[in-house]
C-alpha cells in the first residue's frame, strides 16, 4: 500500500500503458450516501404501505413482512444496486461515482457484499464516523469496507469529445496564407499550451464578458511572442480570433501529424 495519500490510482498494464482512476473524496461519498439513505427510506416507506395491506388479512404476518422488508432493503440495497449497475447506487450515479476493484480488475460480487456488510462497523458510532476517518487517513480514500473488499470508489469524469467545429466557426483563418510561420508555431507551442487555447475556445460561453476579453487578450499576447504573423494577417482580427486561428493551426491543419 502506498504510504502517502493521493487522489488518483495509477495502474500500469503489462504492456507498459499507464492509466489513472480518480479517487472519490469522503465528502462526495457522504453526499452519495445521503441520497442512498433517502432512497432506502423511500423504498421501505413504499413497501410499508403496500405490505400494510396484508394487515387486513393477518396483522401478525403484515408486521413480520414489514420488518423483514426493512432489513432486506437496508442491508441489500447497496449490494443489489452496486451489482446490477456495476459498482453504482442511485447516489453514486448522481454524483458520478463508481466502486471499482483496487487493482483495476473486474469487480466481483463477493467484493461488493463485503464492502456493504462492513458498513456495520464503518457506520459506527454514527454518521459513518469510523468509515469517514478511515477514508481520510487511507492512502486510497478507502473506508474499512473498501479495505476488506479490496475496492476503491472512483469519480467518473463526464466524457465528451471536443467540438472542433467550434474552433473556426465561419471566419477564415488568415494565418494559413503563411505556411512557414504555421509550421514554426506548431514546432514551438507545447501540448499543454495548445490545450489551454483549445479549452478556452470550447468554454468561451462559460466566461463572463470581461473575463473572456481579458483571457483572450493575454493568450493572444503570449502566442504573438512565439511567432509574429505579418501585420495584414493580424491587424483586422480580435484577440479571440487570433487564438482561434492558432488553435486551428495546431489541431486541425491538414499537414498535422498523428
Amino acid at each position: 500500500m502506498a504510504a502517502s495519500r493521493t487522489d488518483t490510482l495509477t495502474i500500469e498494464t503489462p504492456e507498459g500503458i499507464v492509466f489513472s482512476l480518480q479517487l472519490a473524496g469522503p465528502l462526495t461519498r457522504f453526499l452519495a450516501w445521503c441520497v442512498d439513505m433517502a432512497c432506502i427510506a423511500a423504498i421501505t416507506g413504499g413497501l410499508n404501505t403496500v405490505l400494510s395491506v396484508l394487515g387486513v388479512i393477518n396483522r401478525d404476518i403484515a408486521m413480520a413482512a414489514v420488518a423483514l422488508a426493512y432489513f432486506i432493503v437496508s442491508v441489500g440495497y447497496g449490494m443489489a444496486t452496486e451489482w446490477f449497475w456495476r459498482g453504482q447506487t442511485v447516489g453514486k450515479r448522481l454524483l458520478r461515482l463508481r466502486v471499482a476493484d483496487a487493482q483495476g480488475l473486474r469487480l466481483q460480487f463477493s467484493q461488493i457484499a463485503i464492502r456493504n456488510l462492513m458498513r456495520f462497523v464503518d457506520s459506527l458510532p454514527a454518521f459513518y464516523l469510523v468509515g469517514g476517518l478511515a477514508c481520510l487517513l487511507s492512502a486510497k480514500a478507502q473506508r474499512l469496507g473498501d479495505l476488506a473488499g479490496n475496492t476503491i470508489v472512483v469519480w467518473i469524469p463526464r466524457i465528451s469529445q471536443p467540438d472542433l467545429k467550434q474552433l473556426l466557426k465561419d471566419s477564415p483563418n488568415s494565418f494559413t496564407a503563411y505556411p512557414q510561420l504555421c509550421a514554426r508555431l506548431r514546432h514551438r507551442v507545447l501540448p499543454r499550451e495548445a490545450n489551454l487555447a483549445l479549452q478556452a475556445l470550447l468554454r468561451r460561453d462559460e466566461l463572463a464578458d470581461d473575463a473572456r476579453v481579458k483571457l483572450f487578450s493575454e493568450m493572444a499576447g503570449y502566442f504573438r511572442t512565439m511567432v509574429a504573423f505579418p501585420q495584414e494577417a493580424d491587424d483586422s482580427i480580435s484577440d479571440e480570433q487570433y487564438v482561434r486561428n492558432v488553435a486551428d493551426i495546431l489541431f486541425s491543419s491538414k499537414d498535422g501529424r498523428l
Binding site: P162, L164, R186, H187, V189, P191, A194, L250, F251, S252, S253, K254, G256, R257, L258
Partner: peptide, 8 residues
C-alpha cells in the same frame, strides 16, 4: 508536437 486531433 501537436497531433491532428480531428484526424486522430
Amino acid at each position: 508536437m501537436i497531433i491532428n486531433l480531428n484526424q486522430f
